[in-house]
Simulated scan of single mutants.
Amino acid sequence: MSATIHRLGSERPPSLEPMLELVAPDMNLVNAVILDRMQSDIPLIPELAGHLIAGGGKRMRPMLTLASARLLGYSGARHHKLAAAVEFIHTATLLHDDVVDSSDLRRGRRTANIIWGNPASVLVGDFLFSRSFELMVEDGSLKVLKILSNASAVIAEGEVNQLTATRRIDLGEERYLEIIGAKTAALFAAACRIAAVVAERPEADELALDAYGRNLGIAFQLVDDAIDYVSDAGTMGKDAGDDFREGKMTLPVILAYARGSDSERVFWQEAVSGRRAADTDFAEAVRLIRATRAVDDTLARARHYGQRAIDAIGGFPNGAAKDAMVEAVEFAVARAY
């Protein structure tokens, strides 16, 4: 197959619009499945699920399923239900995450657990997980079921890994990458890979799309973790400093701690343990992270993984789908600028 080498850093600001336009007709059908399958005779279920699903998210993960199918020239309809299953898995994990993290904001709106309480959020998350597996079973492919069920298990493992790593100042970069590779990148990878299964393409194409999604997911999370220290709630959809106050050892903190003086390392030890969580402490954390170039280097790593994602689909034919998928990577990295 012919290949074009793409590089991050073009002059025009990257946008998600090409991908949105590419998948728009398919996404309308996916949204119809989502709306239908989140219904229940128990009114609280569609009310709570709808609050999050309609909360302004870009549907990045199901879009990746649809774009990957388009990249492969797939003309069937199986990917619509499977993209909806991917979105249900993602939404369920968000509901559970917000309970675990005691989050107040999600995409700039109050979280479901704040409005309806933790028990309702957990149970509706369970409902959406169940709906996702119904959609997988209806598709009838054991391979698809294996890919998505494995991703669901890996996500849960990643969340537990992160939970046990919370407030651990000794967390290193290797374990951090292991955590985000599981809790974020696994679903990106699976969302892309299943398109090759429904299109009945060889395993090499599956693995290429898996690598694209996995590296994009890591880049995406690296940027998220960086902008927690350089952005605000209006930009991020969550309160700036949430990760800091929750004692999460994200890469900016790992790098700043490793590069800090003895007194700065004492500050980080106290902050991560929860003893320094005031607004003035967060301001000091931001100062130290900037002084040690921790955000710059976190974003440099994001660009590295973004380039790996782009390279992974280099062997597929050129066209609108490939261009949109490349620009989606560039957009994911550029969100911090």
Results as ranks from 00 to 15, higher is better:
Ser2Met: 15
Ala3Cys: 10
His6Met: 08
Leu8Phe: 03
Glu11Met: 11
Glu11Phe: 11
Glu17Tyr: 00
Leu22Pro: 00
Leu22Gln: 01
Val23Ser: 11
Ala24Ile: 09
Pro25Gln: 11
Pro25Trp: 04
Leu35Trp: 00
Arg37Ile: 00
Asp41Leu: 01
Pro43Asn: 06
Ile45Asp: 06
Gly50Trp: 01
Gly50Glu: 01
Gly56Ile: 03
Gly57Ser: 14
Ala67Tyr: 01
Ala67Gln: 03
Ala69Arg: 06
Arg70Met: 02
Leu72Ile: 09
Ser75Leu: 14
Gly76Phe: 02
Arg78His: 05
Lys81Ala: 04
Ala83Ser: 02
Ala83Met: 00
Ala84Ile: 02
Ile89Pro: 03
Thr93Glu: 03
Leu94Pro: 10
His96Tyr: 03
Val99Ile: 04
Asp101Lys: 06
Ser102Asp: 08
Ser103Tyr: 06
Arg106Ile: 13
Arg107Leu: 10
Gly108Leu: 08
Thr111Met: 09
Thr111Asp: 13
Asn118Glu: 10
Ala120Val: 13
Ser121Thr: 15
Val122Trp: 12
Gly125Arg: 08
Phe127Leu: 09
Leu128Arg: 02
Phe133Glu: 14
Met136Tyr: 12
Val137Asp: 15
Asp139Gly: 11
Gly140Arg: 14
Val154Glu: 07
Val154Asp: 08
Val154Pro: 04
Ile155Trp: 07
Ile155Gly: 04
Ala156Gly: 08
Glu157His: 09
Glu159Asp: 10
Leu163Pro: 08
Thr164His: 07
Ala165Leu: 03
Thr166Ala: 11
Thr166Lys: 11
Thr166Tyr: 14
Thr166Leu: 14
Thr166Pro: 09
Arg168Trp: 02
Ile169Lys: 10
Asp170Leu: 05
Arg175Val: 02
Glu178Cys: 08
Ile180Ser: 04
Gly181Val: 05
Phe188Lys: 00
Ala190Pro: 01
Cys192Glu: 01
Val198Ile: 05
Leu207Gly: 15
Leu209Arg: 07
Leu209Ala: 10
Leu209His: 04
Asp210Asn: 09
Ala219Lys: 02
Gln221Met: 02
Gln221Trp: 01
Asp224Gly: 02
Asp228Thr: 07
Tyr229Phe: 15
Val230Arg: 10
Ser231Glu: 13
Asp232Gln: 14
Thr235Tyr: 10
Lys238Asp: 12
Lys238Tyr: 10
Arg245Gly: 12
Lys248Trp: 15
Met249Lys: 09
Pro252Asn: 14
Val253His: 07
Ile254His: 05
Leu255Asp: 05
Ser261Lys: 10
Asp262Asn: 13
Asp262Met: 13
Arg265Lys: 14
Val266Thr: 12
Glu270Ser: 14
Gly274Phe: 14
Ala278Gly: 12
Thr280Cys: 08
Ala283Met: 12
Glu284His: 15
Val286Ser: 09
Arg287Gly: 09
Leu288Pro: 06
Leu288Trp: 03
Arg290Pro: 07
Thr292His: 12
Ala294Gly: 11
Asp297Met: 11
Leu299Pro: 07
Ala300Thr: 12
Arg301Leu: 13
Gly306Thr: 07
Gly306Lys: 05
Gln307Met: 04
Arg308Gly: 03
Ile310Gly: 00
Ile313Tyr: 02
Ala321Ile: 01
Lys322Ser: 11
Asp323Val: 11
Asp323Asn: 08
Met325Ser: 11
Met325Val: 04
Glu327Phe: 01
Ala334Trp: 02
Ala336Phe: 06
